[in-house]
Design a protein around this nucleic acid. Structure first.
Length: 414
DNA sequence: TCTGGGGTCCTAAAACCA
DNA sequence: TCTGTGGTTTTAGGACCC
C-alpha cells in the first residue's frame, strides 16, 4: 500500500462504529523462534525448508530488509541474505497459536481464527463490557508481548475487509483504526491488488479492463466484471468496492478436508519410490481424522510432475473411512493409473467428512475388517506415548535401510 | 530465481436422476 | 420408450490465502 494513509488509518483516529478487529502476528514462526532463543533477537531469522526445494515459511523483519519473504525459494534467500540464521520449522507453532487465541477469547467469545497467526474479533459486545476497541487492542497487544514475547498488529474497522487492510497497513507492531467518516474515500484509492481475493491472475484480467484502483472497480457494472472474472467473484468485488461487507465474525468453523502432501528432494521415478510415501501420507491423514473424530468418503490423490504440471484424481468410497490402509488403496490405484512420469510431489486428501461416531462400522459377513483400523489405532497410541517415529511401516524401514529415501530431509512439514 | 504445505472456494463439464 | 429438461453430485483444475 502506498501514499499517505495517515488521514484514513491511524492509532488515534475515532473508533466509534468500528467493532471488528483483525489481529495479525508479526513474522509469526520467526517471532516464536526468537522468543524461544533470545540470542536471535535483532538478527535476520529465516524459517524455511532447508532441502534443495525448500521455500521460506517466515522471515523476521531484519531478514526482509534483504528481500527475503515467505514463499521465496530457500536457495535464493541464502543468496540474498548469506549471514541469515536459517532454521527449519521446529516445534508446534499451533500450540503457541492456541494460547494466543485463548487470550483473545478473554475479551470476546466472537473470535474467528483465519490461520495460525491471524484472527478476526467482533468487539461489539466487549465495547460495552470492557472498553473501546482501541483500548482492547492495546491490552491484547501488551498481553501477547508480555506472555509470549511476540509482537502483533491490530487493525480496527467497521468491516472485516477494512479491518484486515488496517492491520496490513499498520504492521509490524502497530495498531490502526480506519476512520468511519473517510472509509469510502480510503477504499477507492487502494490498488486492486489490496483486495482480498484479487491475486496475480485476477489483477491481470482487471488491468486489461483498465482497472487500477478499487474506485475503478466501483465504477464498472457487475456484468462486465462477471464476463472477466466470473459471477461469484464479480458480485464479491462489486460489493466490496462499494464498502458492502456484511460477513459476520464466525467463531465456529467446520473442517471440510484433511490433506498431507510432500515434495521429493529428487523426482521419484516410479511407484516403488513414491508408493511407501503415499502410504505414510495416507496413514497420517487417517490418524488426523481419527483424532478429530472424522471419517471421509472422498479420496483425492495429487501428483506434481517434474515439469510442475499438477493433476488430481479423486473418487468417492462406498462408505466413509478413517483407515489409512483404505485411503491408501484408493489413492494408490488412482496414482498408478495417473503417474506416467517422474513425480516431484505426491499428496492425498480426505474430504466429504462426517462424524465418525455416526459411521456404523458394520462389516460385511466374515470380512476381517477391523484389522487395519485396530492396528492403526494402536499405532496412534504408541506414537502418543513414545513420540513420532516410534512406529513406522515395515516398508519405510526397509527403504531407510537401503538408503533410497529420496525425500528432502529438510522438508518443513514432514 | 525456480517455485512448500495446508487449506478454502469457484467453475465447468460430466454423470446421474427424477 | 424416446427425448428433453433441469437439479444435484461428482470430478478436475485453478486461483487464492497464509
Amino acid at each position: 500500500m502506498n501514499g499517505d494513509l495517515s488521514r484514513f488509518i491511524g492509532p488515534d483516529l475515532p473508533d466509534e462504529g468500528t467493532d471488528i478487529a483483525h489481529v495479525d502476528m508479526d513474522a509469526f514462526f520467526a517471532s516464536v523462534e526468537v522468543a524461544r532463543d533470545p540470542s536471535l533477537r535483532g538478527k535476520p531469522v529465516i524459517v524455511a525448508g532447508l532441502g534443495p526445494r525448500g521455500v521460506v515459511a517466515a522471515a523476521s523483519y531484519e531478514a526482509r530488509e534483504y528481500g527475503v519473504h515467505s514463499a521465496l525459494p530457500t536457495a535464493i534467500a541464502r543468496r540474498r541474505c548469506p549471514h541469515g540464521v536459517f532454521m527449519t520449522p521446529t516445534t508446534s507453532y499451533g500450540e503457541v497459536s492456541r494460547q494466543i487465541m485463548a487470550i483473545f477469547r478473554e475479551y470476546t467469545p466472537h473470535v474467528q481464527p483465519i490461520s495460525v497467526d491471524e484472527a478476526f474479533l467482533d468487539l461489539a459486545g466487549a465495547r460495552r463490557l470492557i472498553g473501546s476497541p482501541v483500548e482492547i487492542a492495546r491490552a491484547i497487544r501488551e498481553r501477547v508481548r508480555a506472555e509470549h514475547g511476540i509482537t502483533c498488529t491490530v487493525g480496527i474497522a467497521s468491516t472485516k475487509f477494512l479491518a484486515k487492510l488496517a492491520s496490513e497497513a499498520s504492521k509490524p507492531d502497530g495498531l490502526g483504526v480506519v476512520a468511519r467518516a473517510t472509509e469510502l474515500e480510503f477504499l477507492h484509492r487502494l490498488p486492486i491488488r489490496a483486495v482480498w481475493g484479487i491475486g496475480e491472475k485476477t489483477a491481470e484480467k482487471l488491468m486489461r479492463l483498465g482497472m487500477r484502483t478499487v474506485g475503478d472497480l466501483a465504477r464498472l457494472d457487475v456484468d462486465s466484471l462477471a464476463a472477466s472474472v466470473g459471477t461469484a467473484s464479480a458480485e464479491h468485488l462489486y460489493a466490496l468496492s462499494r464498502n458492502i461487507d456484511p460477513r459476520p465474525v464466525r467463531p465456529e468453523r467446520v473442517e471440510k478436508s484433511i490433506s498431507n502432501e510432500t515434495t521429493f528432494g529428487h523426482d521419484a521415478p516410479d511407484g516403488a519410490v513414491w508408493g511407501p510415501v503415499l502410504l505414510e501420507l495416507s496413514r497420517k491423514v487417517a490418524s488426523r481424522a481419527r483424532a478429530a473424530g472424522w471419517a471421509g468418503r472422498g479420496v483425492t490423490v495429487k501428483i506434481r510432475f517434474g515439469d510442475f504440471r499438477t493433476i488430481t484424481r479423486s473418487r468417492m468410497l462406498a462408505a466413509p473411512t478413517d483407515v489409512g490402509r483404505e485411503i491408501y488403496e484408493a489413492a494408490r490405484e488412482m496414482a498408478d493409473a495417473a503417474a506416467t512420469a517422474p513425480v516431484r510431489l505426491i499428496g492425498v486428501k480426505l474430504d466429504h467428512l462426517v462424524e465418525s461416531a455416526a459411521v456404523g462400522r458394520q462389516v460385511a459377513l466374515g470380512e476381517p475388517e477391523h484389522g487395519w483400523r485396530d492396528i492403526e489405532a494402536v499405532m496412534d497410541k504408541a506414537t502418543e506415548k513414545f513420540g513420532k517415529g516410534a512406529v513406522r511401516s515395515a516398508a519405510r524401514l526397509a527403504r531407510r535401510d537401503s538408503r533410497v529415501d529420496t525425500r528432502d530431509p529438510g522438508n518443513p512439514a514432514r
